[in-house]
Simulated scan of single mutants.
Amino acid sequence: MDVLINVFVALHIIGIASLLGGFLSQLKAMGAGTARFTPAMLHGALTMLVTGVALVGLNQADGATVDNIKIGVKLALLIVILGLVYVKRDEEKVDKGMFVTVGALTTVNIFIATLWT
């Protein structure tokens, strides 16, 4: 079970890397006002959602305790991120404030995952 959990953790990290990497790659375009949500950002957010839900289930099945409040906060942030990226995915350019919001929420989600114990 530990190997399976670690595989899903790795996939979860790949999802967050895709989401954050897509954001960081658009920073120069954001300065020019032409930033857009890339397909990698959408796929990264979806990967995080699927693997996160799987990780909660696998950890509970393994008998580990899961902090449901922490998971709920992370899920709420991810749903907001996913909603923003999904709705604006086909737009040629995205409002700077919305783009910064997605990057900030992604960063907050990372800090919640690592610092909330």
Rank of each mutant, 00 (worst) to 15 (best):
L115N: 04
H43Q: 14
V102K: 01
G15D: 05
A113H: 01
T106W: 09
L46E: 11
G97P: 01
I69H: 13
I69N: 15
G52R: 05
V50T: 14
N109I: 05
D95R: 06
L58M: 15
K93M: 05
V80A: 12
Q26N: 01
L4F: 04
P39L: 02
L27R: 10
A10T: 08
M1Y: 09
L49S: 14
F111C: 06
A40N: 12
V9D: 06
E91W: 01
I71M: 13
W116D: 03
A29M: 06
A64K: 15
I71K: 08
T47H: 02
L75K: 03
V102A: 02
D67S: 09
I16Q: 13
L42K: 10
V50F: 12
A17D: 05
Q60W: 03
V87N: 04
H43W: 15
G33I: 08
R36Q: 11
M30H: 00
A113P: 06
F23C: 07
D62Y: 12
E91I: 00
A32I: 00
V7T: 08
L11E: 04
L55T: 07
A32K: 12
L82Y: 03
V56E: 11
M98G: 11
G21H: 02
A54M: 15
V87I: 12
R36W: 01
G22D: 02
R36F: 10
G22M: 01
G97K: 04
G21V: 00
E91T: 04
V9I: 15
E91Y: 01
F8R: 07
W116C: 04
E91A: 13
T106K: 05
A104S: 12
F23G: 05
I112C: 09
L77G: 02
I81P: 01
W116A: 02
V100L: 08
N109A: 15
K88I: 00
F99N: 03
G44S: 10
V53W: 08
I16A: 12
V102H: 03
T117I: 10
L19V: 08
D90P: 04
D95Y: 00
A40M: 14
F99R: 04
V3M: 13
I81C: 03
S18R: 09
M30E: 07
F23K: 04
K93E: 06
V85H: 03
A113I: 04
K74Q: 14
L11C: 10
A76T: 04
T106C: 09
L4Q: 08
A64D: 13
G97R: 03
M30V: 00
V100E: 00
I71C: 08
F111V: 05
T101Q: 05
T101P: 01
Q26F: 00
A61G: 15
I112R: 09
L11F: 11
A29K: 10
A35W: 01
G52Y: 02
N6D: 07
I5F: 10
S18D: 07
T114H: 08
I16D: 11
W116G: 01
